[in-house]
């Protein structure tokens, strides 16, 4: 089993995710308000964060439920948004290799966009980050998510508007920085171009939903890299 150096373990994961968790908390407050309107109690809102731990799908499910989409319609809308998590946990195979099933399951449950991307960006820069780093980031962000969503449900008034503060763009900026770290050289140019082109063509020309095109763009870009000898 791999051991991480001090500075690349659990607490490093928790520390590195703090700026992202702060942004997540602003969304958490706004989501708590939405979830309360959709009829979830504060206890249920907090439990949902820990049990589901996929914020955008929780938002879509609550929105759809509030809009009268029904039980299956609301759940399926949320799950479609989570299809990218299949690709995320698949790409963590080095992190899970040789671990008992329960550690793999726990790590997979805690894998979110943010701690996954930070782990890969750290590795691309030569840091020895692994399972403990993923868990540290995942638990720290889960605490921020559950705390802020529950607070949003309890104190439904005076919720700041994420867009007005520019927090909505914080995640785009974070992922731009992480993409910079993941850049491995010119061999990435074609697959990345294909990914972006598929997203743009699907959404702008074919009018396909963005969350479907996100997963499809990532897959087709990766297939381009795989097909090259």
């Amino acid at each position: 089993m791999r051991t991480e150096q001090s500075g690349d373990g659990f607490w490093a994961g928790a520390r590195d995710i703090l700026p992202l968790a702060a942004g997540v908390s602003v969304y958490g407050l706004a989501f708590g308000l939405l979830a309360a309107q959709a009829g979830f109690s504060p206890l249920q809102i907090g439990a949902m964060g820990a049990l589901v731990y996929a914020g955008s799908s929780q938002i879509i499910m609550s929105q759809q439920w509030l809009a009268g989409a029904g039980f299956a319609g609301s759940v399926v809308a949320g799950l479609i948004l989570n299809l990218r998590l299949l690709l995320i946990t698949a790409s963590l195979r080095d992190v899970f290799a040789g671990r008992p099933w329960w550690q793999t399951a726990f790590g997979a449950h805690l894998a979110a966009d943010e701690n996954w991307a930070l782990l890969l960006a750290g590795r691309a820069r030569g840091r020895r980050v692994g399972y403990a780093y993923l868990i540290g980031g995942g638990l720290a962000q889960m605490a921020a998510w559950c705390g802020s969503t529950t607070a949003g449900g309890l104190f439904a008034e005076a919720i700041p508007d994420p867009r007005g503060l520019g927090i909505d763009f914080a995640f785009t900026a974070a992922f731009i920085a992480i993409a910079r770290s993941l850049w491995r050289g010119r061999s990435d140019l074609l697959p990345w171009f294909v990914s972006v082109a598929v997203v743009f063509a699907g959404v702008k020309l074919a009018g396909a939903p963005a969350h479907w095109m996100l997963a499809l763009g990532g897959l087709i870009g990766a297939a381009t890299a795989g097909a090259r000898a």
Partner: peptide, 14 residues
């Protein structure tokens, strides 16, 4: 290649 492709697709959708 998947992580990088998924991240740029994520940026593209936003």
């Amino acid at each position: 290649a998947l992580p990088g492709c998924l991240i740029v697709a994520l940026v593209a959708t936003s």
